[in-house]
Amino acid sequence: MENRTEQPAQPRKRELLMWILSGGLFGMAASILYPLFAYLKPPRLGEVETSSVKAGKVDDFQVDSGQIIKFGTKPVLLVRTPNDEFRAFSAVCTHLDCTVQYRREKGVIWCACHNGTYDLTGRNIGGPPPRPLDEFRVVIQGEEVLISKKA
């Protein structure tokens, strides 16, 4: 009697347990594998490289012009001088942290906030800036312009 009542109930109970067990197993596998595969997918921003940055092709920059390049979390001003030299400086004005720009008609690096001026070696030559701009190194590799921290 006892056996007969238990026998049909047990397989159903076991079946349910197996369902839950495999469901849990599946869920856990998902919660491990999803992060894992997401991690393996290369991030869209590319690799970290703050010691040097590719500014672009030589031809992207006109002679006698300047352009702001993002260097890590800092802006850098890349200037192609009238003598066709590449120079790079921190674009943060040493006076009150405004972003400086290259002024072609004056041939200087200029800060719009308080009329501070720097010459093309980064020296502060006019206005309030207390010290020169930090210089970065520019290396030209083939057609590529690379900016890196000065050692």
């Binding site: 992060p35 997401a38 991690y39 997918k41 991030p43 921003l45 690799e47 970290v48 703050t50 010691s51």
Partner: peptide, 27 residues
Amino acid sequence: LYYKGSEELAFESIKFIMSKVAFGWLI
């Protein structure tokens, strides 16, 4: 896969793992 064992890049690469790589913070 993302770590770089050099003086200039070690810190930056961990920062990169933590902020840019999906689930890098978790790993």
